[in-house]
């Protein structure tokens, strides 16, 4: 079987298009590249969904935590504490079984037990908590002069927030937020190992890498392939976030522009 044929058969296997049966023996390098790459669709999907939706909740949570009103502050503090203080792995398990119990209450909860929705919700809440803490830290370190100048020019309320506070917060938080994004994409690999079933063997990249490692007893091929794909994703994230970073800092003198520093962190 030629490699192009393999790509046609397995390229979209992770979302259920193409050959139904996974290869069982005589695994070729091409099959491993194709299937693991196909699994990356899920990793990118989870990462993007969580990042895009989590961003807004994170802003809200950060504002809540910085607010002087205890009605807004306390829930935000607890939200951040619960999601940052416990392992994501356990959160996945808990959410899955919680959705499973809710399923018996009402059929509305049916889709929640499948990974595409249930795991996405957990990741959304989790990344909202982590980035909320980052944004909160940035909110506290906005230079006093900036807000005073805004007051002096008659900015107030929503305009002040939209034009001064929020862009400055994002500018200060951006390097840390980039790391959080990279970190989030790495965390997506946990989904199919934590209760959420890979229905009809439609799994993510690590699921397929693990499949090959189990079948061939040779971890030295699939895992480096997986690593290669993730390094690629990381580079894309750094590029995209770097562009945004440039835009956020475009009004600053060249020297003082914050450079994106790579500080990889790890499992949560």
């Amino acid at each position: 079987m030629s490699c192009l044929q393999t790509i046609a058969d397995y390229g979209l296997r992770s979302i259920g298009i193409g050959e139904r049966l996974l290869p069982r023996e005589d695994f070729t390098l091409c099959q491993q590249f194709t299937l693991i790459g196909s699994g990356m669709i899920w990793n990118v999907y989870f990462g993007l969904i969580a990042l895009l939706t989590g961003f807004f909740l994170a802003t809200a949570v950060a504002l809540g935590k910085a607010s002087s009103n205890p009605l807004a502050r306390k829930p935000s503090e607890w939200f951040i504490f619960v999601f940052r203080g416990s392992p994501l792995f356990i959160q996945f398990f808990f959410a899955y079984f919680a959705f499973l119990s809710l399923k018996s209450v009402s059929p509305i909860f049916d889709p929640f037990t499948s990974a595409w929705l249930g795991a996405a919700i957990v990741l959304f809440l989790n990344t909202a908590a982590y980035s909320g803490e980052i944004f909160y830290g940035a909110l506290l370190s906005i230079p006093k002069g900036d807000t005073e100048a805004a007051d002096a020019y008659g900015f107030s309320g929503l305009t002040k927030f939209r034009k001064i506070t929020w862009p400055t917060m994002l500018r200060l938080a951006w390097p840390a937020y980039t790391n959080e994004a990279i970190f989030l994409f790495h965390a997506t690999t946990l989904v199919y190992f934590s209760g959420f079933p890979a229905w009809r063997q439609k799994g993510d990249a690590l699921y397929y890498a693990n499949y090959f490692a189990d079948k061939t007893f040779n971890p030295f091929v699939p895992y480096p392939i997986l690593a290669g794909y993730f390094i690629l994703v990381t580079l894309v994230i750094i590029t995209v976030f770097g562009l945004v970073n440039r835009r956020l800092n475009r009004h600053l003198p060249q020297e003082s522009r914050g450079r994106l520093k790579m500080r990889m962190n790890l499992i949560r």
Partner: peptide, 16 residues
């Protein structure tokens, strides 16, 4: 070790 997803490393090292 820092550049690669951590869980992959866990799964990899145990067999390796």
């Amino acid at each position: 070790v820092r550049g690669v997803p951590d869980i992959a490393f866990f799964l990899f090292f145990v067999i390796a």
